[in-house]
Nucleic acid binder design. Structure first.
Length: 738
DNA sequence: CTTTATGGTTTTTTT
DNA sequence: AACCATAAAG
C-alpha cells in the first residue's frame, strides 16, 4: 500500500490519515507539503471511498494542478474526471460558466487580461474626460484590482479628498465595471468576486455546492487574498472538511493582496482544527538550509519554525562578485561549465533566478555565446506577442461579439482603411441605439456622416466576422483560426512588415498557435470536456508563466524568483544581489515590504538542492545608465559559516572572509545617502502653483514617487496637462497671492 | 480621413 | 518590443 511510512514520514502520514474535520499543515520549504496534500487526496478517494466529485483542490498554478492530478491518479487508480483541481481562477471561471444562467453575463464571457483591462480603463477615462497625460491608466487598473482583491466596492473606497487621482478613482472604478458588463467581459478579480455575488443572490446554488464540495483542500494558503479567503469560507458548510497547507515564510504576493493573516488566523476560524508541522527538509543541504534559515530569522512577522535535515554537509553557499552584469553572466557560465564537468550535471539541473525580468537580457547573451541551451519562463510571453494577441482578438470577437476592446484592436488590423474617426462615429451611433459596436458596424450605412465607400469597407469586415461566427459551430477551432489568419491577410502582413528573420519567427509563432489550438481541442475531446473556442481562450487567459515551462528539453531554466516558487533544482544561481535591485529600491522604506523581499530571497535559496550561488555586480546598467551598486544587505544576513566567498579582489577562495564589517559600513553609507537625497529635493504640495520655462504657469495636481524619481503632474494654463520629473523640470514655485 | 515615420517612454514581482 | 503622441504626406 502507498499510505505507509515507506513513502511518508510520521507527521506527513498522520496528516494524510487524519480524521479531523479541519486541518492546518504548516510546512517549511522542501518538507513535502505538496506530497502530503497529494497523498491526502489520494487517500480520501482510495481508502475512504470519497467520490472525486466531492473534492475541490486549489493549487497556485495550473502546472501544480496538473502534476498533482497525475500523481493522485497513480495512487488512487480511480477515474478522476470529476475531481475539481486547479487554480482559484480556473476553478471559479468554470463554475461561473456552468451557472451562467443565473448571472448577468452570457456563458461566453471574455476574460480580460491586464492589457485588455488597461484598454478598457482608457476608454472609460475618455468617457469621463480624464486626459491620459494627467493620470496613467495603468495606475487606475492597479488600484482597482487592489480594491477588488480586498473586496472594497467603489462606494467604500477610502479616498484622500485633496488628491485628484483619488477623487476620480471611484467614478472610474464604477464605470469600468459597467463597461466590462456591457462587453460581456470579466477581469481576473471578477472571477473571484462574481461567484460570491452569485452565492449571495442564489442561496439554492450555494446549497448545491455545499453539498458537492465535502472536502476542500488549498495549497499555498499563505498567498490567498481576502477574496479567495472569503470564497472558500463561503463554500464551507457545517459538514464540509477543509485542509490548508502553507508556510508564512514563503508569502511573496502581498503586493497582490495576499493576506498572511489568513494562515496565521486559521485556528481562529476553525478552533477545533488540528495543526501539523512539517519541519524536516528533504531538499537542500545543510549549508543552504541553515543559511536560508538564518536569513529569514531576521523577519519579525512570522510564527517561526525550525527546519532541519538529515543530509550530509555538502557544499557551502558560494558568493560571487562581478564587475558588471555581463561579467556576472560570464562567471555564471564558467560555473555552469564547472558544475557540468566536475559534477556531471546537465543543463536541466540548473536554474538562474533574478528579481526582475529585465535582468535576463545580459544572461541570455552570454548563454547564447557559449551555446548553452536555455529556456526562459516567460520573458516576453508567447501569448503577449503582438501577432498572437491580434489573432486571439479575432477569436474573442467571434466568441463574444460584445467585446469591443478586442473589436477595436482588429477592426483596422491588418490595415483596411477604417480609422479611429470612423470607429468613433459608429460607436456614437451604436450607443444611441443601445446596440453593441459590432452590431453598429452591421448598420453602418445608416450613419449619415460616413461615406458609402467607407461604409462598404466596414460592412465587408462585418460580414467576414459574421461568416466566422457561423462557421465556428461547424469547423474545428484550429481550422477556423488558420483560415481566418490567411483570409484577413495577417500572414501576408507579417511577411511584408518585418525583415526576413523577424517575419519568419513571427509566422512560426502563428503556426505554433494553430498547433496549440489543435492539441487543445483533441485533448479536451478525449477527456470529453469543453473543447470550444471559448474554452481555449479561457485556458489561455488563465495560463501562468510557469504553466508553459518546458520540462522535456534539456536546458538551463531562467525565471524570476516569483516564478520559482514550488520548484526545485540541484543547482541555483541567484543574480543581482544588490541594494536597490534586491531588495528593490521602492521596498526599502517600509519594513513589511523589506520583509517580503527577504521572504522572496528565502524562497529562491530554498529551491536549491546541492549548490547555491549568489552573485552581485559592482555596477549595473539599468534604464540605459550605469549605476554603481552596493551589495545587498541580505548577503550580510547569511552567516559566513555557511558561505564561501569568491571575490574578484581577494585571491582565490577563502572561507569566511572578514569583509563583513566593511560591507556593513558601506551599507550604512548607502542608507545615509538615500536619506540625504530625499531631504534635498523640494516638495511640491498639491494645489501649489509653479512656473515652467516652456509651459508657463500651472497648478500642481499630483505628486508620485520620491527623490530623483519624483514626478509632478501639473495643469498648465489652457488645459495643458503634463507629468514632469521634478529633478529635470526646473520648476519655480509661485506665491499663492499671484 | 487615414497612413506612415519618428522619437520618446516604458518595468517589480503576476492570476 | 510595444505602445503612445505628433506631424506631415497621400
Amino acid at each position: 500500500m502507498s499510505f505507509t511510512s515507506k513513502n511518508l514520514n510520521s507527521v506527513q502520514l498522520e496528516a494524510v490519515k487524519s480524521k479531523n474535520q479541519h486541518i492546518l499543515i504548516l510546512a517549511g520549504a522542501g518538507s513535502g507539503k505538496t506530497r502530503t496534500l497529494t497523498y491526502r487526496i489520494a487517500y480520501l478517494i482510495h481508502e475512504k471511498n470519497v467520490d472525486p466529485s466531492n473534492i475541490l483542490a486549489v493549487t497556485f498554478t495550473n502546472k501544480a494542478a496538473r502534476e498533482m492530478k497525475e500523481r493522485v491518479e497513480k495512487l488512487a487508480k480511480g477515474n478522476l474526471a470529476k475531481l475539481w483541481i486547479g487554480t482559484f481562477h480556473s476553478m471559479f471561471a468554470r463554475l461561473l460558466r456552468m451557472e451562467a444562467k443565473a448571472l448577468p453575463y452570457g456563458s461566453d464571457f471574455t476574460i480580460y487580461d491586464s492589457d485588455d483591462q488597461v484598454n478598457a480603463i482608457k476608454k472609460v477615462m475618455s468617457m469621463l474626460n480624464i486626459p491620459q497625460q494627467l493620470h496613467s491608466p495603468k495606475l487606475f487598473q492597479a488600484r482597482i484590482s487592489q480594491a477588488k482583491n480586498k473586496m472594497i466596492s467603489p462606494d467604500k473606497l477610502e479616498v484622500k479628498k485633496d488628491d485628484n487621482f483619488d477623487v476620480l478613482l471611484p467614478d472610474v472604478f464604477r464605470r469600468y465595471n459597467e463597461f466590462l458588463h456591457e462587453n460581456n467581459a470579466v477581469d481576473f478579480d471578477d472571477l473571484l468576486l462574481l461567484p460570491m455575488q452569485l452565492f449571495n443572490d442564489h442561496p439554492s446554488i450555494l446549497k448545491k455546492y455545499h453539498r458537492k464540495f465535502k472536502y476542500i483542500l488549498v495549497d499555498e494558503y499563505q498567498d490567498t487574498n481576502k477574496a479567495q479567503y472569503s470564497l472558500i469560507h463561503q463554500l464551507m458548510s457545517k459538514n464540509s472538511h477543509i485542509c490548508v497547507v502553507g508556510d508564512e515564510d514563503q508569502s511573496i504576493y502581498r503586493w497582490r493582496g495576499a493576506d498572511i493573516n489568513n494562515i496565521l488566523n486559521f485556528n481562529k476560524d476553525y478552533p477545533e482544527a488540528k495543526v501539523f508541522r512539517l519541519e524536516e527538509n528533504y531538499r537542500s543541504n545543510k549549508y543552504i538550509l541553515n543559511g536560508a534559515g538564518a536569513l529569514i530569522s531576521n523577519n519579525t512577522e512570522r510564527l517561526g519554525k525550525d527546519l532541519w535535515t538529515n543530509r550530509k554537509d555538502g557544499d557551502p553557499i558560494i558568493l560571487m562578485d562581478a564587475e558588471n552584469e555581463s561579467d556576472e553572466a560570464k562567471k555564471i557560465v564558467e560555473n555552469i561549465h564547472k558544475e557540468m564537468f566536475s559534477k556531471k550535471r546537465s543543463f536541466k539541473d540548473i536554474a538562474i533566478l533574478y528579481r526582475t525580468n529585465a535582468q535576463s537580457r545580459a544572461l541570455e547573451d552570454e548563454l547564447r555565446k557559449n551555446a548553452i541551451s536555455y529556456a526562459i519562463v516567460s520573458g516576453v510571453k508567447f501569448y503577449e506577442r503582438k501577432e498572437i494577441k491580434d489573432i486571439l482578438a479575432y477569436l474573442k470577437v467571434i466568441t463574444n461579439p460584445r467585446d469591443s476592446v478586442s473589436l477595436r484592436r482588429i477592426v483596422n488590423f491588418p490595415l483596411r482603411g477604417i480609422g479611429e474617426t470612423t470607429v468613433g462615429k459608429i460607436e456614437k451611433f451604436a450607443e444611441a441605439l443601445n446596440i453593441s459596436l459590432l452590431e453598429g458596424m452591421g448598420k453602418v450605412q445608416e450613419v449619415i456622416s460616413i461615406s458609402s465607400g467607407m461604409a462598404n469597407r466596414v460592412l465587408e469586415f462585418y460580414e467576414m466576422i459574421n461568416k466566422y461566427q457561423k462557421s465556428s459551430k461547424k469547423i474545428s477551432a484550429a481550422e477556423l483560426t488558420s483560415s481566418l489568419t490567411h483570409e484577413t491577410g495577417i500572414i501576408t502582413h507579417l511577411k511584408n512588415e518585418y525583415d526576413q528573420y523577424e517575419s519568419e519567427s513571427r509566422i512560426d509563432n502563428v503556426y505554433e498557435l494553430f498547433s496549440t489550438i489543435e492539441i487543445f481541442s483533441t485533448e479536451r475531446e478525449q477527456e470529453k470536456k469543453d473543447s470550444s473556442l471559448s474554452a481555449f481562450l479561457e485556458d489561455v487567459a488563465l495560463l501562468s508563466d510557469i504553466d508553459s515551462m518546458n520540462t522535456t528539453r534539456n536546458s538551463v531554466t531562467m525565471m524570476t524568483l516569483h516564478s520559482s516558487k514550488g520548484l526545485e533544482f540541484p543547482v541555483i544561481f541567484i543574480t543581482g544581489m544588490e541594494m536597490g535591485l534586491f531588495p528593490l529600491q521602492r521596498n526599502f522604506a517600509d519594513n513589511s515590504e523589506l520583509e517580503e523581499e527577504r521572504r522572496l530571497l528565502y524562497v529562491g535559496m530554498t529551491r536549491a538542492q546541492e549548490n547555491l550561488y549568489l552573485s552581485y555586480a559592482r555596477s549595473r546598467r539599468r534604464f540605459n545608465n550605469i549605476n554603481y551598486t552596493t551589495p545587498s544587505l541580505f548577503l550580510d544576513e547569511i552567516p559566513s559559516e555557511f558561505t564561501e566567498e569568491r571575490l574578484a579582489g581577494s585571491s582565490a577562495t577563502g572561507k569566511g572572509k572578514s569583509k563583513r564589517h566593511t560591507r556593513r559600513k558601506k551599507l550604512l553609507e548607502y542608507f545615509h545617502q538615500e536619506d540625504e537625497s530625499q531631504e534635498e529635493v523640494t516638495s511640491y504640495a498639491i494645489g501649489s502653483r509653479v512656473y515652467h520655462e516652456t509651459f508657463g504657469k500651472g497648478e500642481v495636481i499630483g505628486v508620485e514617487g520620491q527623490g530623483d524619481k519624483m514626478k509632478i503632474s501639473i495643469k498648465f494654463e489652457g488645459e495643458v496637462y503634463k507629468k514632469l520629473i521634478a529633478q529635470y523640470a526646473n520648476l519655480t514655485p509661485i506665491e499663492i497671492s499671484d
